[in-house]
């Protein structure tokens, strides 16, 4: 062998292969695309900005707010604070989740990825692990920040402390909710393989289906609504259960996890059998 294709005597430094290597590679992929980084920045800004804005509006309009609405906020200030935060920022998680996988198809990168990791499901698993952990860590940090921004704003009207029952679980739950939502979006993106269609699909699930389901008559609508992925999943980010909730926070999160797991299995089966 000549020196031209590789330096004399130095066969390339090949170390042990394994799942850890694929995870490391997926981490490189995520951090090295500028749009991902900007989307994450947008997630933080939207979350914290809307926490301040919506909590501020709630406090400012307090005297004009009717008693029932006041009671809702008072019963669970944590839910109000966190909900104001991810009201919009959850959409960036949906978009990112879809893009992380669908952009590989739209750019053709998927072919390079699958040539490097022909055991396709391990590529998908590594991508899911990296993205979910990233969103969980960032989502939890943002969730705490959102809580500490909203808490003093609402303090006079609806006081709450991190030590109150269920509050810490709800704040961490904010990170858990966003992480599962990201994984849900990634799974749907892997099935649909098309960025725009995938984003439309996820946002349909998150924003459109819930109001549609509540239009269904009687208890049917109520049950369908309660078991929708984002509706069930958001329960984990509330400190107190409402009387009307059908599921406990962890049951709700479990339902969301089952939705996500089903989509992931479909995505994995398709990835194995379809031509890339």
């Amino acid at each position: 062998m000549t020196t031209a294709t590789h330096a004399a005597g130095t066969t390339p430094d090949i170390r042990k292969a394994g799942f850890g290597r694929v995870v490391l590679s997926e981490w490189t992929k995520i951090r090295s695309v500028r749009s991902t980084v900007w989307s994450l920045v947008l997630l933080v800004i939207l979350d914290l900005g809307f926490t301040a804005l919506l909590c501020g509006l709630t406090a400012a309009q307090w005297s004009k707010t009717d008693a029932a609405a006041q009671a809702t906020v008072k019963a669970d200030p944590t839910g109000t604070i966190l909900g104001s935060g991810f009201f919009l920022s959850q959409l960036t998680v949906c978009v990112l989740g879809v893009m992380v996988i669908a952009s590989e198809y739209s750019t053709g990168m998927i072919r390079a990825s699958l040539l490097a990791v022909p055991r396709r499901v391990s590529m998908l698993a590594a991508k899911a692990v990296v993205f979910t952990l990233l969103i969980f860590v960032l989502g939890t940090v943002v969730s705490f920040a959102s809580f500490f921004i909203g808490q003093p704003i609402l303090h006079d009207k609806a006081p709450v402390a991190l030590g109150d029952p269920g509050v810490l679980r709800a704040v961490v739950g904010g990170g858990l909710y966003l992480a599962m939502l990201g994984l849900f979006a990634l799974a749907l993106g892997a099935i649909i393989r098309h960025t725009a269609a995938g984003i439309t699909g996820v946002i349909g699930f998150v924003l459109v289906l819930a109001p549609l389901a509540s239009l269904l008559p009687g208890s049917l609508g109520k049950h369908v609504h309660a078991y929708l992925p984002s509706e069930a999943g958001q329960l984990i980010a509330r400190a107190h259960q409402a009387d009307t909730d059908l599921l406990t926070p962890w049951q709700g999160y479990g339902v969301f996890a089952i939705w996500t797991a089903v989509l992931l299995v479909i995505a994995a089966v398709q990835l194995r059998s379809r031509d890339a």
């Binding site: 390339p12 430094d13 090949i14 170390r15 042990k16 292969a17 290597r21 694929v22 490391l24 590679s25 997926e26 490189t28 992929k29 090295s32 390079a112 490097a116 990791v117």
Partner: peptide
């Protein structure tokens, strides 16, 4: 780099 990491190439 992302491709190299899957193979453990330096």
């Amino acid at each position: 780099l992302a491709l190299a990491q899957t193979q453990g190439v330096g």
